[in-house]
Nucleic acid binder design. Structure first.
Length: 271
DNA sequence: ACGCTCTCCTGGCCGC
DNA sequence: TGCGGCCAGGAGAGCG
């Protein structure tokens, strides 16, 4: 997926194009994404005006006076604003058509995304209520990581990917931040000290910030809301680079699986 | 509570 | 060129 930088890029891309627009029609071309789609969406949405477009973790929240649309891009989802008459492609599952003729189109080959309607505060929705702090917020820092990790035996990489700990750090940026911080991704979270967590928190913020500035990372499926790819791929130091020389020490970048996910690291720079 | 695995889905790529 | 196997940015569910 779309990790945090990709969702942020999408949020910034669509917000100015759809804020204030009134929904005329919702078109669903599949009956389920990650979960069965609530057909009530088609009843609730027409006539609503988009008052806000926000991101929380990897969720996009479209606020209206009556409730909120909660969107998740899953592993392969993307959103674009196109003219409503634009011919749909195979994986264009949802269209939110506005009265002015614009269309917010959700595309997701793997159908791991989500689309939910809630009339409560979306931040209190069961999917969002348990989420950890935003990584770019001040409350996310080395002290927080250190305290949260005491007694934890889980490897540090899956640890920082746990959305209950901190949101938005996915598989790509977890490898990148650990490389930048010089921490072996296999280390038990509970055995890493304050200073190293201080560094890791800084690197997570730095890497995510750079990726947002580059419009995210496009491996294959992700595109910005204007259809362009994200350009951060060129700046990836280790992700997807097994066998290539480490940009710092030239030794071969290694890969392994941790918690079912591909992990890339330099065994010389990361201890 | 914690740590681990499996699972949803489609497509691209690799090797035979 | 076709086919099987494996892999892919997420994360909830269920297990011990």
């Amino acid at each position: 997926m779309p990790e945090l930088p990709e969702v942020e890029t999408t949020c910034r891309g669509i917000a100015p194009l759809i804020t204030g627009k009134t929904i005329a029609q919702l078109v669903l071309r599949t009956d389920k994404l990650r979960w069965p789609l609530d057909q009530g969406l088609c009843l609730h949405l027409p006539g609503q005006r988009i008052l806000s477009v926000e991101r929380r973790a990897k969720y996009l929240l479209l606020g209206t006076a009556q409730g909120s649309l909660i969107l998740h891009l899953g592993m392969s989802g993307s959103l674009r604003v196109v003219p409503a008459e634009t011919t749909e492609n195979k994986h264009d599952h949802v269209d939110l058509i506005f009265t002015g003729g614009e269309c917010l189109r959700f595309t997701d080959p793997r159908k791991f995304g989500a689309l939910l309607w809630t009339e409560e505060d979306p931040l209190l929705h069961p999917l969002l209520a348990q989420l950890g702090p935003e990584p770019l917020a001040e409350e996310f820092n080395g002290r927080y990581l250190y305290q949260a990790s005491r007694g934890r035996k889980i490897a540090v990489k899956p640890f920082v990917m746990d959305q209950k700990l901190v949101v938005g750090v996915g598989n790509i940026y977890a490898s990148e931040a650990l490389f930048a911080a010089g921490i072996d991704p296999r280390l038990a979270a509970g055995r890493i000290g304050r200073r190293r967590y201080q560094r890791l928190a800084e690197e997570i913020k730095r890497v995510l910030g750079l990726a947002i500035a580059a419009g995210g990372t496009t491996i294959s499926d992700f595109f910005q809301s204007d259809g362009k790819p994200g350009y951060f791929k060129q700046q990836l130091q280790v992700y997807g680079r097994a066998g290539e020389p480490c940009p710092h020490c030239q030794s071969q970048i290694k890969s392994l699986r941790l918690g079912q996910r591909s992990t890339y690291y330099c065994s010389r720079c990361q201890r």
